[in-house]
């Protein structure tokens, strides 16, 4: 069986600048090939601006792509029109970080969750009746842990965590196969974050969902993801089983990223790999390996030839000429 979602040398470039000062190309996503298998949770990690959100939006064709291909359930949707995408839309949904911005403040929670049910018909074209919608609303609120009474209230009456439950219910209304969640717990306080991470995990298990879970917090991703893709400047530099990648990283960037996470415990002595400088601009990514300007292992070859993703023999791939050996 084919992967649920596959990208083949997918690129998304933005033209930035102005007529006056000249246009330049920003390579937000630059030639990414990966597969998302049914029932897995693929975590996308990397620092601000590395292209996580752009990749997530491309996967669901919420934006036009510049080059490459996207296959959903074996079907090429790279350039599919809105009309051709429409029957597939219920099967792919997105949850965003900002739980408030994605909810119309003037509508009741019940209406917000029911909206996709009203917009989309059944696969055979039949509309959903009000009785059916009411029943589904009951199921959904139970599923995400919202009291029935919540359906009559407005978004502002809820805390951030509860609003994220509303967003999740909305995303699940049409029983999707794939959910792309973009930093869905990043804005939440830790004590609430744990509730929502658990909810994501429970739902994935009970409904057999497939997630692409975008987060900059490595420990959140480790908790929920089965596989992890590490991004740097629009490219995937390492991808593989979560435990393999996060416990014994092969790419020097992954290693540095993990070592920079401050851990909430005392007595763990970890070797900090301090990277100098900041991430270069995606308008002019460095030649050769994109990471060579900050890489502690870089050698002459690295600035000349770009390393391709290679199988490391343990189910993970890394794009580095001198991968870290364990």
């Amino acid at each position: 069986m084919s992967a649920l979602l596959e990208t083949r040398t997918l690129s998304k470039h933005y033209r930035i600048g102005s007529a006056l000062r000249g246009y330049r190309t920003l390579r937000a996503v630059d030639g990414i090939s990966l597969q998302v298998e049914r029932g897995e949770v693929l975590g996308l990690v990397g620092e601000s601006g590395c292209g996580k959100s752009t990749l997530g939006r491309c996967m669901l064709r919420l934006t036009e792509i510049t080059a490459g291909e996207i296959l959903f359930d074996g079907r090429d949707i790279s350039r599919a029109s809105d009309k051709r995408l429409r029957p597939l839309r219920p099967r792919m949904q997105m949850v965003f970080q900002d739980s408030y911005a994605s909810l119309n403040p003037r509508r009741r929670v019940g209406d917000l969750i029911a909206e996709p049910l009203r917009i989309h018909t059944h696969a055979d074209g039949a509309r959903r009746g009000e009785a059916e919608i009411a029943e589904r609303l009951g199921e959904l609120s139970h599923l995400v842990g919202l009291p029935q009474s919540a359906l009559q209230r407005y978004p502002h009456e809820f805390s951030g965590g509860q609003r994220q439950r509303i967003n999740i219910a909305r995303a699940l209304a049409l029983s999707p196969d794939l959910v792309v969640a973009d930093e869905p717990v990043s804005a939440l306080d830790v004590s609430i974050q744990a509730q929502i991470v658990n909810l994501f995990m429970d739902l994935q298990e009970s409904l057999g969902l497939t997630y692409v879970f975008v987060a900059h917090d490595l420990s959140v991703v480790r908790q929920i993801a089965t596989r992890v893709a590490v991004m740097y400047l629009g490219a995937v530099v390492e991808i593989g089983p979560a435990d393999t990648v996060l416990h014994s990283p092969a790419h020097p960037y992954t290693a540095a990223l993990i070592s920079a996470v401050p851990e909430p415990s005392v007595g763990v002595t970890t070797r900090r790999i301090t990277l100098s400088g900041d991430v270069p601009s995606p308008v002019s990514p460095p030649s050769g390996c994109r990471f060579h300007t900050r890489c502690p292992s870089a050698q002459a070859l690295c600035s000349m030839t770009a390393p391709a993703l290679q199988d490391m023999g343990d189910g993970r791939e890394a794009a580095c000429h001198f991968p870290l050996l364990t």
């Binding site: 830790v190 004590s191 974050q193 744990a194 991470v197 490595l218 420990s219 959140v220 480790r222 908790q223 996060l246 416990h247 993990i258 996470v261 851990e263 909430p264 415990s265 763990v268």
Partner: peptide, 9 residues
């Protein structure tokens, strides 16, 4: 609070 933070290791 400390318990609710997912561990990195």
């Amino acid at each position: 609070l400390l318990d609710s933070i997912p561990p990195l290791r």
